[in-house]
Design a protein around this nucleic acid. Structure first.
Lengths: 331, 331
DNA sequence: CCGCTGGATTGAAACGTTTCAATTCCAGGA
DNA sequence: TCCTGGAATTGAAACGTTTCAATCCAGCGG
């Protein structure tokens, strides 16, 4: 495999010059640069990442910890997120390293290994818990990171999140505008921060519309299709005391729609349904699901931009991204 | 950040010895080893990945190219695959680097950059086309890789695949055993290799059962839920000339089931439905979907094992993994 | 014709490991 | 007591970059 010396020799120039051309740091005469670039192309030379990392003291690699085993993320939303992150990384010439971790206790060890070994320059945290042990650990160790989501006590750390509260408020207002007065809400356990915020949006939305908040219109269930389905099933035995339903995730909304179908209540006709995320399947549902889209590209870009800042020691203000209400036939 | 010299100094020993302890190569007296390990723990020392890579001439990193943009993989199956790969990598102390690529033309450049820069030791190829330009490129450049899936002309390269043919044959036999004689088949375009093999399974399954192959029982559609739905819809206008349906992916099967429901034909009761993949949603469908499970853990392990062999210059025989028929209520 | 200036180029020293070859150490045999 | 040989340890040379400081050189003003 060609090295920088090979290039230098063949271009009749010193390795230093080649390095200058490569990084265009340092002054190089145009014709010299041209010659060097030529040789680089001829030889198909690519600088050795390890050597570079050693000298420059950074790896240009983003670390993403993916919980697996029990805690595995199976919402297709995360596949979209990974795509978006990959794209954003590519835009900034960064690489994305995925590390999986079965055991929550091993999370911190994994983080240390990757960071202290300089395999990654910093982390992206996803799937935050309201109290997340990773955050104090990273802060204390002075390891750069960005969180996708918030935690209960947002200390001084950079995060990017989608404004679930604003989104759900908009959804409530939208439904109210269509004449709905009894709007139900289906939420994952509030120990998920995102669930908490979206739920706040529901409460505030109702308040803004002057509607009462009723316990009977709330159901808590796991954030899966099945749980959404079951929730509606049991609700149906009570005669379905609402005309519209907001689910905190598309997956739950999809489950809910199926239950409604089975009971002969056509979503979008007999009952309005709104989801959250806009996973690819949402547009293909029947009827197509009205939902709050998480603008993935924007999220990926914001995360990587903030990550870069963090790695460079800058502190970025938090970014709150507004979800977009996508109106389809379900509501 | 602590270096190997710091450890050496503090343990009263030379860097070489520390290195021997770290990799347990070379003879070290037990008490020396103990002392060194102690210091390593005290200092929270982790060897610098770049330096290590430079010297050892490998990065212990697996490269995975994720197509994005138009070609993006949105089947939740891939999220499961990523999880499984991550786990398998962790088991072998490997890291998983995800590189995305919008443009098929850039695939090859990306591969070169990652490999020649020694960022990765080799690749994992997913989402194979029947004619895949990456394969000849990798072969010619002598870059180690393993394909998940096969191509049209399987030259001499290592691959791991799920035996779609055997799986579908089993599904056909299973349905025949239940008395079905008119079994329909829903397939993605046969330019996908996996679709081709599964389709072969269907033909052979019918032949083995002594059933005729009928064009009218075949539909080709994109491998999405929506496409599965539409296919059944149009079929319904013809009076649904079958009693059982095999779909080549769960997503398609799920779409099909929805169409059946809408038409008042209960899947698993009026029409048997079998899918392929066993994505998490399959078990949560209504009725739960009978399907051929791709044993993800096994796939991940096989891929990584084969990858390691490839990187070490060994040639492994192809691995064909038998999918498992998971019987649920839909068939 | 000389000394200066400033841009272009280069040499060499890191960066933090691994590993070969050389050295030290020590127990046991003569 | 001195050797010997194997086990334990060490020094130093890579690995392929980047970058500082030093050198080179062409052109210019005096």
């Amino acid at each position: 495999m060609a090295t920088i010396r090979d290039v230098a020799r063949r271009a009749g120039v010193s390795p230093a010059t080649v390095s200058y051309v490569l990084n265009n740091s340092g002054p190089v005469r145009p014709e010299t640069r041209e010659r060097v670039l030529q040789v680089i192309a001829e030889l198909g030379y690519h600088p050795h990442a390890g050597a570079r990392q050693l000298k420059r003291r950074r790896s240009d690699t983003v670390g993403l910890i993916l919980p697996t085993g029990e805690r595995r993320l199976s919402d297709p939303f995360f596949l979209e997120l990974i795509h978006a992150l990959g794209d954003a990384c590519a835009d900034h010439q960064l690489d994305l390293l995925i590390a999986t971790c079965r055991d929550p206790a091993a999370d911190l060890r994994l983080i240390d290994r990757l960071y202290k070994g300089r395999r990654v320059d910093g982390f992206l945290l996803i799937d935050l818990q309201r109290q997340d042990p990773r955050i104090p650990h990273l802060l204390e160790a002075g390891i750069p990171f960005v969180a996708f989501g918030r935690i209960e006590e947002n200390g001084e750390f950079p995060w990017v999140d989608v404004d679930g509260e604003a989104g759900i408020r908009e959804a409530v207002a939208y439904l109210v505008g269509k004449g709905h007065r009894r709007i139900a809400y289906l939420s994952p356990p509030l120990s998920f921060t995102f669930a908490h915020h979206r739920f706040e949006g529901y409460r505030k939305g109702l308040a803004e519309a002057g509607l009462p908040f009723e316990e009977a219109l709330i159901r808590i269930a796991r954030p899966t299709m099945e749980a959404g389905y079951q929730a509606i099933r049991t609700w149906l035995t009570e005669g379905l005391p609402f005309t519209a339903l907001i689910a905190a995730t598309d997956l739950m909304a999809l489950g809910a729609m199926r239950a409604l179908h089975e009971a002969g209540r056509i979503p979008g006709q007999d009952v309005a349904v709104i989801g959250f995320d806009d996973i690819p399947m949402a547009a293909q549902a029947h009827p197509p699901l009205t939902t709050l889209r998480q603008p993935m590209d924007q999220i990926g870009q914001a995360l990587i931009r903030t990550w870069l800042a963090a790695v460079n020691g800058e502190i970025s203000p938090p970014t709150l991204i507004r979800p977009i209400l996508i109106r389809r036939a379900s509501a």
